[in-house]
Amino acid sequence: MILETALLTVRPGQGPAFERAMTEAQPLIAATPGFLGLELRPCLEAPDRYLLLVRWERLEDHTEGFRGSDRYARWKSLLHHFYDPFPVVEHYGESMVSIPAPCG
């Protein structure tokens, strides 16, 4: 499993519009073979910042499958105008360390 990460900073005051656009865009990415799930988390300290986490079976499912699809053009038109600055997208491999919470 590959974890795609992006720290998304949206233009000031555009958070609610960005969240609506992300809701509309979600089916576009979800239709991609190899897509395993998506989380969008708001930053508690910065109201215009979000953490995007996307799980993929393989790196190529994102870099070639989704980004090479017609759906990606629509994704870009819905979301990319919100970002300032444009986010850095990175991909991470399997967890090297995993510590469960203590029981009880």
Score class of each variant (00 low, 15 high):
2 I>N: 05
2 I>M: 06
3 L>R: 01
3 L>M: 13
3 L>G: 00
3 L>H: 07
3 L>W: 08
4 E>A: 01
5 T>H: 09
5 T>Y: 01
5 T>K: 04
9 T>S: 14
11 R>F: 03
12 P>I: 00
13 G>M: 04
14 Q>W: 08
15 G>V: 06
16 P>W: 10
16 P>I: 10
16 P>M: 07
17 A>G: 14
17 A>W: 01
18 F>S: 15
18 F>W: 09
19 E>R: 14
25 A>Q: 09
25 A>V: 06
27 P>E: 03
27 P>W: 08
28 L>W: 03
28 L>V: 11
32 T>L: 03
32 T>P: 03
34 G>Q: 03
37 G>Q: 05
37 G>W: 02
37 G>S: 02
38 L>F: 09
38 L>I: 08
39 E>Y: 00
41 R>Q: 08
41 R>N: 07
42 P>R: 15
43 C>M: 01
46 A>L: 01
49 R>S: 01
49 R>A: 04
49 R>V: 03
50 Y>V: 02
51 L>K: 06
52 L>H: 01
54 V>E: 02
55 R>I: 08
56 W>P: 07
56 W>L: 02
58 R>I: 09
58 R>D: 12
59 L>A: 15
60 E>F: 11
60 E>R: 13
61 D>Y: 08
61 D>T: 09
63 T>V: 06
63 T>S: 11
63 T>L: 11
69 S>A: 09
69 S>D: 04
70 D>F: 05
70 D>V: 06
71 R>V: 09
72 Y>D: 05
73 A>V: 11
74 R>A: 14
76 K>W: 00
76 K>Y: 00
77 S>G: 03
77 S>L: 02
78 L>Y: 05
79 L>N: 04
80 H>N: 15
81 H>S: 15
81 H>Y: 09
85 P>W: 03
86 F>S: 15
87 P>A: 12
88 V>Q: 05
89 V>S: 07
90 E>K: 10
91 H>L: 02
92 Y>W: 14
92 Y>D: 03
94 E>N: 13
94 E>Q: 05
95 S>N: 04
96 M>W: 13
97 V>A: 07
97 V>L: 15
98 S>P: 05
98 S>Y: 04
99 I>H: 03
100 P>F: 02
100 P>Y: 08
101 A>W: 01
102 P>W: 14
102 P>Y: 04
103 C>S: 13
103 C>R: 07
103 C>H: 13
104 G>Y: 13
